[in-house]
Design a protein around this nucleic acid. Structure first.
Lengths: 234, 234
DNA sequence: TGGATACAATATGTATACATAACATGTTCA
DNA sequence: TGAACATGTTATGTATACATATTGTATCCA
């Protein structure tokens, strides 16, 4: 069983970073992770190098691994870059997809829909991640894939709240996102690149709206104190 | 001195892959590389993971590291993807560059021009690589940079012949490429994004022409034997 | 008090030894 | 002969011990 323990560990750490279980900017502690996954430092350090190469963490000489941060300067780039990457990948995926790809994608979409309906937010965000990663692999383009992967890391981290809808309006948006996935699958199936791109842009716009609100949330009401608690001074 | 031996080793292996000193598709031998760079397997294996993350090599479980291959299916993607990546990066570089960036870029361009004039092909290709990597860093976009880096690996490997001009016409093309770099620097300096993009596309078209000829070289003349050696049978 | 230094504690980097898996070679038996 | 199996060799993966670097803390002195 120690055969794929390393692979499991790598995937699990990725998952924990994506679900914000390990916070952006925080340090990865070699020793405690070794204990947690029951392995020695040597393979753990190799995992760190891998995570660094894929953009999950930043590595500094003699200073360990730090989870990639999401400061505002980077967020600006995120919103600026997402459309061109997602659209380019969608076009290529429509052109180059194989039949096996569609089966995988449909299976992921199935699980994704189930997770959203069950209200399992972390799982939904993770399955959405895998869905879009699958599209990236369908594109069969080793040059775009690294950027897509890097985008999806932050997209998934940002969207953690998206699948935890707090109102009927937000629930409707989630349902709409799920339906958009189905439409995208249909476009890929018929190799309709133009339609795949259009749907992808629509999908992005829906997501963008919600994400921007997460980055710059509605300001707290400034008159709360005078309205409700004005009687006693603070 | 064992302090940055690892960093040197990493850079040196990258360089040897870029200059085709280590051939695409060939296996990296842990033991011999350890001996060559005078280090043990532990840090060398970490270097392999890093190289894997950046797309220089492909890692397989229990089967070591193999230098990224350049088969024709991938080459098609290369030519398809390069314009959008290079153009996007150029635009952002023009928008986000700092004064220090320009100094670095000018220094690289200086060395690059010198190398081309001296006919040092390997060094010229490598400095061209660093020049474009510097532009990528100027863009300050962590999402696009991974794809740019991946593109530049293959671009540099493909262009190894470019800087070894075999005719006056080819020499003129190299000189033109060098001049285009100067024009691009000027566009970055004046933060003229549109011009930077246009120049980048021109630069790509010049390069593309030459690279395609490398991938699909002129066929050998089919009548050589009858013309010159027809007298004696083979 | 403040800052500089020394030293201990911790974290990171490397080397070696051992464990396991893949591969090649040779042998046996039908 | 040749196909299946056994075995030795090589390559890869992991654990541990040790080396080095960084960081925190205490002490000393101006």
């Amino acid at each position: 069983m120690p055969k794929d323990r390393k692979a499991y560990c790598l995937e699990d750490i990725k998952m924990r970073i994506l679900t914000l279980d390990i916070a952006p900017g925080s340090d990865l502690d070699e020793a405690s992770l070794c204990e947690r996954y029951g392995m020695s430092r040597t393979p753990m350090r190799e995992i760190f190098q891998r995570l660094g190469g894929e953009g999950y963490v930043e590595l500094t000489q003699n200073r360990g691994a730090k989870v990639a941060s999401m400061d505002l300067a980077v967020m600006r780039m995120f919103f600026q870059t997402a459309p061109v990457i997602y659209a380019s990948v969608a076009r290529l995926a429509a052109e180059n997809r194989q039949d096996e790809d569609l089966a995988r994608l449909r299976a992921l979409q199935n699980d994704f829909r189930t997770a959203t309906e069950a209200g399992d937010a972390g799982q939904a965000a993770l399955l959405n991640h895998r869905f879009h990663l699958c599209i990236g692999e369908m594109a069969r383009n080793p040059y775009l894939l690294p950027s897509l992967k890097r985008m999806l890391i932050d997209h998934t981290r940002l969207s953690q709240t998206f699948y935890r809808p707090a109102s009927d309006d937000e629930s409707a948006r989630v349902a709409q996102a799920v339906d958009q996935h189905d439409a995208m699958i249909a476009a890929f199936a018929s190799r309709d690149a133009e339609r795949a791109v259009d749907l992808t842009i629509d999908h992005w716009n829906l997501s963008r709206d919600r994400l921007e609100r997460f980055v710059t949330p509605d300001p707290l009401p400034i008159n709360v104190l005078t309205e409700r608690g004005g009687a006693h001074a603070v």
